[in-house]
Amino acid sequence: MVNTEQFRRERLDRGIKIRTDGLYALMSWRELSYLTLPRLILIVGMLLLPLIVPGMYWQKVVTILCIYALLAISFDFLAHYVGLVSLGGAFFIGAGGYLAAILNSTYGFPPILTIPIATLVGAAVCTLLLLPCLPLRGVYFAIVTLMYPLVLARIIEALDILGGTDGIVGVDSFANRWVEQYAVIAMVLLALFGIRRLVNLDIGLVFRAVMDNDQAVRASGMNISYYKAIAVFIGSALGCLGGACLVHIYMWCGISLFALDFSILPIAATVIGGSGTLVGPVLGCLILVPISELLREFGTLRIVFYSLILMGFIVFRSEGLMVYGERKYHQFQRWVKV
């Protein structure tokens, strides 16, 4: 006998989710913890991470992971809140990294100064270089960001400036490895919650409006290029911050800062973690970076691996893990007969 009954999935919000909307969340510890627990797990987890991983090597991995997380947050912010797809995370890393290295090795600035200066100046340089493609919609931004790291790496190589292929060696490191790790972890958490705050502020709404419908923004008497430039400045500042930290971690700066890993891994992490959630990219990095370390001996196969995962997720599961997890947390589902 053929079963002709059909079922459909029904999703319902959990009662506690509705009770925690608005002021009622303060009613009891249960509601409070329902709201704050996921955030606490993330914060405490990130803070404990250097303590629980085995050995120096994996502590280094945690640091690198945080750099990637900064880049991934920057990608997610630019792509899903401003509508600018950046294929060149390496460009931001390179700009910040080279600036920090020059400031440190040539002018002798300590890391505490080079990192903020490199972040701000680097972001300004990146914004300036990307300015021509900001008035336009479409693929131009992606194309230009894709080109810059490739071309810059080649220029440095060909002209033998900034240390050429050998790079700049002898960059100062952080005071000790605990400072290094907790500095980058604090930066990731600050960036994460800061950007989350930003996109819900009034100017964040303007960014989203620029993405949704730039003509209406222009009709309101606002210069879209100006707001896009601000957003690119914020996004590239995160990338440059990562780059500046990276050269102090490696104590070296070279054209491998323009390597493809920095461009593709944050994108993969964002898509896997959940586009437009900002937490998702961090989650994606937590998954991808350790796997990539395990695959280190396979060389460029890692990039093939990210690319394939990325393609699989974008084609078949474009919502990402974070959105899925959020749904499971807030809703339950059941099958109802149609």
Partner: peptide, 27 residues
């Protein structure tokens, strides 16, 4: 075809495809 019209996904999917081929060949 599955991501057609979603500008962000189009760019990322085709770029990822290209990278997979190139770096696969290199490997």
């Amino acid at each position: 075809i599955r991501v057609r019209g979603i500008a962000i996904s189009e760019i990322i999917a085709s770029y990822a495809m290209g990278l997979a081929i190139l770096e696969g060949l290199r490997w």
